[in-house]
Write a protein that binds this DNA or RNA. Structure first.
Length: 267
DNA sequence: ATGCCATGCTCCGCATGA
């Protein structure tokens, strides 16, 4: 069984204690991190490696930054989404992970990506245009990856509220870049290529969130959003056995505003 | 109606986030 999780940590340097604690208790095999907010050189690698993880990261000073942690052997395939310019923001890293043979099952290769989709607010700015273009690029790449017909998981902070069931107050969010029709349409187009939302495949109850704003007591009032997703190729979805949202880390001291989403694959 | 909170920078207020 391979346990895979995604978590926007909102600064790995500030959050390293929380991250280490959660790695020890949740014991994921593969973790996608977003908003590490530092360069690769600044990453607290030793403490993470001490828990048995290999690290692949794409960082930048101050903002963004993504990483993959894996207890299994991992080789980096891409450090950016195809189709971008030279002044790339650090929002994508993709790797091949070797899943060894176990009791009757043959060894497999799992492709995994950690992505941090642009927020896009405010909607009348270039940031919104950048988000829409980034989503188009993601769909193109996701389509190409499906042609490989391999187990694949695209995990991360998508900054997309897929449906009205994924936000505490849909009306209040209609004009936000996380919920606008153009954004939801692009997210659906991505899903319709043939991806499965690992959480929704096994959990249908509405109002299950992965993010709660730091402000206005959003956590205490459960005013949240479901914007962190694990998307599976058919070859991975066929082997999905469990998934969930781990609310634990959001309730602790100095938390990230996001909490981990996880799934288990019987590869 | 607005800001609330948190992070990083280089600063002691501003940009960014969702």
């Amino acid at each position: 069984m391979v346990k895979i999780a995604t978590w926007n940590v909102n600064s790995i340097k500030v959050r390293i204690r929380n991250v280490l604690e959660w790695l020890r208790e949740a014991k994921p095999d593969i973790v996608m991190l977003q908003e590490i907010k530092c360069t690769v050189a600044e990453l607290p690698c030793l403490e993470i490696e001490d828990l048995g993880y290999n690290i692949a990261a794409v960082g930048q000073k101050s903002y963004n930054g993504v990483a993959l942690l894996s207890r299994l052997p991992m080789t980096v395939e891409r450090e950016a989404l195809p189709g971008g310019s030279d002044d790339e923001q650090a929002r994508y890293v993709e790797a091949l992970i070797e899943v060894p043979a176990t009791n009757g099952k043959r060894a497999r290769v799992l492709r995994a990506a950690s992505l941090y989709l642009p927020n896009g607010n405010p909607v009348d700015s270039l940031k919104y245009d950048y988000k829409l273009v980034w989503m188009d690029r993601l769909r193109q790449h996701a389509r190409d990856l499906l042609e490989l017909e391999e187990p694949l998981i695209l995990g991360g902070d998508y900054n997309v509220i897929p449906t009205e069931d994924d936000v505490y107050d849909p009306v209040a969010w209609v004009d936000d870049a996380l919920f606008r029709p153009e954004v939801r349409r692009r997210y659906r187009a991505l899903i319709y290529l043939g991806y499965v939302d690992a959480f929704r495949a096994l959990n249908q109850e509405p109002h299950q969130y992965t993010f709660w704003d730091y402000q206005a007591g959003a956590w205490q009032r459960d005013f949240g959003l479901r914007i962190d997703h694990l998307l599976l190729s058919p070859q991975a979805a066929d082997r999905l056995v469990a998934s969930g949202i781990d609310r634990g880390p959001r309730g602790r001291d100095r938390p990230s505003d996001h909490t981990p989403v996880w799934c288990e694959l019987d590869l």
